[in-house]
């Protein structure tokens, strides 16, 4: 077994394009769920909104990528308002069901034959998405990384993606230490109390949903640009739940929670997968096949989400003072 290679592959995934997509969704969810307490089970819809905006504008309408980014933000805002205005007055569990239902509803719509001309049906939209972005790649054409296995194109996406992610993290940090952040945290703790102090809770929740959705949409934009493909069935509800797992792992309502959660989540998941695959390929494990690795990874993900929620709801870097509160 080549542990060096396993480690390299694992690191590549822990900081790679897919991890970044989840990271944007998690930063957005951190505002919505972590700070404001909104049980948004339809985060994947915002990612899909971002990805499909790019796909439709660039491929279906043959317009500029830059325009599509603007459209993606407008679309995600409209989606947040459509979801939020009617539902944010509902109980938390109702909100969860409505948002997950809405995300499924949207997925079924974009994959339908009826809108195939626009959204590409079950096949989605595939082709030269993000050419304008890749044209800006400053890396020399024959560039290769010494250790990590990113292509020149992926590295460019990763550099820009992480810069944006840090920028958004800074943005969240600024938001939550302001009086605005204090109000949304209050809403998370007890909505009625905040109402009784004269705050229009509904508006704050809507703002949190819009901001979090917009950041998640960037995950979708990144997806379309990096993978050159937007497919409806990648936007299943499980995506949202993996984002929840990431957030809980890194710690909800922690500024660096999403980053820590994403890197750890993908490091563990990829590392486990690579090690197991390697064991199977080298004949150390013969009762499993290479295709089983995928299932086992997902099983562990589910188990991880359960155990985290039961034993460490405040994340793996829990605050001792908060821990004490939980014990009450």
């Amino acid at each position: 077994m080549d542990f060096g290679q396993i480690f390299t592959l694992t690191i590549t995934q822990a900081f790679g394009v897919t991890a970044l997509i989840y990271l944007f969704a998690a930063i957005g969810l951190n505002i919505q769920f972590g700070y404001t307490g909104l049980l948004n089970f339809g985060q994947v819809a915002f990612v899909a909104a971002g990805a499909y905006s790019v796909g439709v504008i660039v491929l279906t309408f043959d317009l500029s990528l830059w325009l599509s980014i603007v459209v993606a933000l407008i679309t995600s805002t409209i989606l947040a308002l459509l979801l939020g205005i009617p539902t944010l007055r509902l109980r938390a569990d109702y909100l969860a069901i409505v948002t997950i239902a809405a995300s499924e509803l949207l997925r079924l719509l974009v994959r339908s034959i009826a809108f195939k001309d626009v959204f590409g049906g079950a096949q989605g939209l595939n082709g030269k998405l993000g050419q304008e972005f890749h044209d800006l790649n400053p890396l020399p054409a024959d560039f290769t990384l010494p250790v990590l296995s990113w292509s020149r194109q992926d590295l460019w996406v990763v550099i820009v993606g992480w810069s944006l992610a840090l920028l958004f993290t800074l943005f969240v940090w600024g938001l939550v230490r302001s009086p605005w952040g204090r109000v949304v945290k209050g809403i998370r703790e007890d909505e009625d109390a905040v109402v009784s102090l004269g705050k229009n809770v509904f508006v704050y929740k809507l703002q949190a949903l819009v901001i979090g959705g917009g950041i998640a949409a960037f995950g979708g934009i990144l997806w379309a640009v990096a993978k050159q493909s937007v497919q409806p069935d990648t936007f299943q509800p499980d995506f949202t739940f993996f984002v929840f797992t990431i957030l809980l792992l890194g710690g909800a309502a922690r500024v660096f929670g999403p980053i820590a959660g994403t890197v750890i989540f993908w490091f563990l998941l990829a590392g486990f997968g690579e090690v197991l695959s390697s064991l199977i390929n080298n004949g150390y494990i013969d009762f499993l096949t290479a295709t089983d690795v995928g299932s086992i990874r997902f099983m562990l993900m589910g188990l991880g989400l359960m155990l985290l929620m039961i034993f460490r709801p405040q994340g793996i870097f829990g605050d001792r003072r908060e821990l004490a509160l939980d014990a009450r």
Binding site: L175, D190, K199
Partner: peptide, 26 residues
């Protein structure tokens, strides 16, 4: 509001805070 400090609880009560507007927050 359990997971907020006593001071944050108090400050939440103050009205007309410009920092509570999302555009001023940053």
């Amino acid at each position: 509001l359990s997971r907020m400090t006593v001071m944050d609880n108090m400050l939440l009560g103050a009205n007309g805070q410009s920092g509570e507007r999302v555009f001023n927050a940053l």
